[in-house]
Design a binder for these strands. Structure first.
Length: 284
DNA sequence: CCCCAGGTCAATT
DNA sequence: AATTGACATGGG
């Protein structure tokens, strides 16, 4: 892929890439909007500013090494989203949905941070989720610069008490976070090695953690294990799918997930993001 | 003051 | 196997 490194920044041009849509579609919680197409992301133990004008994207600060070894994969730049959209457009519902999120991409996030983030996401709102992630980082993470902190590693959360987590506004999810932390810290679940397993094994393993059900497991698989066949079903997706594919007739989450995974295959996850965006913007 | 939020658990049928 | 209330917290 073509890019250039200038003054400690990396600049590249990319179709099917809109930084606002990528970050605001609910897959990632560790970022701050500065203005329209200008964001700060905290990920991979780094602070990264991303700004975009037209198709030109600037990452700052970013060396050529960091671009090739970290952010290229993080932003999923090896995948041809134009081709994906072309394939999905054969379905009439998706052809409409894509209009509302033409610049969406599925990030490849850190597995640990993704797991904890989506445990926090249950029965919660996005601004609150972002708040909790930030609070945990400030309290337990490493200081990266003047006012930014990395997301805490398992060993950094391992000594936390339920009370300390409550101070971070985790609410009733404190026990879930501790269970996940202990299982990962002790090695009972090796979330990184899990990547070598098939999707069913990953799903089952993740769901042994308290507070991880089908929705959270699917989000983690999609947003950090590159499992494109995962189709997380939440209240929005449920409503949208029932309306678009089942004439308003009610279906169970499991039924919808299976239906979608058979219909969209490896592209289920990205299809889900387009439908989600569509549902939100239509206020279903 | 009541309702709900990108769900899941545990108790109950 | 399917259904139901509880769960912290904060915003509408």
């Amino acid at each position: 892929m073509e890019y250039k490194e200038v003054d400690g920044n990396v600049v590249f041009c990319q179709k099917s890439f809109l930084i606002n849509q990528i970050l605001e579609c609910g897959q990632c919680f560790n970022f701050v909007k500065i203005d329209d197409m200008n964001y700060k992301i905290i990920a991979q133990d780094r602070v990264l500013y991303v700004s975009q004008v037209g198709e030109e994207v600037t990452l700052s600060p970013c060396t050529a090494w960091e671009f090739e070894n970290i952010w290229y994969n993080y932003f999923d730049l090896g995948k041809d989203y134009c081709k994906i959209k072309e394939i999905l457009s054969k379905d009439e519902v998706l052809r409409n949905a894509i209009q509302y999120g033409e610049g969406v991409r599925i990030l490849n996030q850190d597995k640990w941070e993704c797991l904890i983030s989506f445990i926090i996401s249950q029965n919660n709102r996005i601004p609150m989720i972002k708040n909790v992630v930030r609070n945990l980082s400030v309290k337990f993470g490493d200081k990266l610069d003047k006012d930014n902190y990395s997301f805490p590693k398992p060993f950094q959360l391992n000594d936390a008490t339920e009370m300390e987590l409550r101070e971070c506004k985790t609410g009733f999810r404190d026990k879930y976070i501790l269970d996940a932390t202990h299982k990962v810290y002790t090695g009972e679940i090796d979330i990184y090695k899990l990547d070598e397993c098939d999707s069913d094994t990953i799903r089952k393993q993740l769901q042994t953690i308290k507070g991880v059900g089908p929705k959270v497991a699917n989000c983690v698989m999609l947003f950090s294990y590159s499992r494109g066949e995962a189709f997380p079903v939440d209240v929005w997706i449920k409503r949208a799918m029932e309306q678009f594919y089942f004439g308003g007739q009610e279906k169970s989450n499991a039924y919808i997930q299976q239906f979608a995974e058979e219909k969209f295959g490896e592209l289920s996850g990205i299809a889900q993001q387009y439908i989600f965006n569509y549902a939100i913007s239509q206020g279903l």
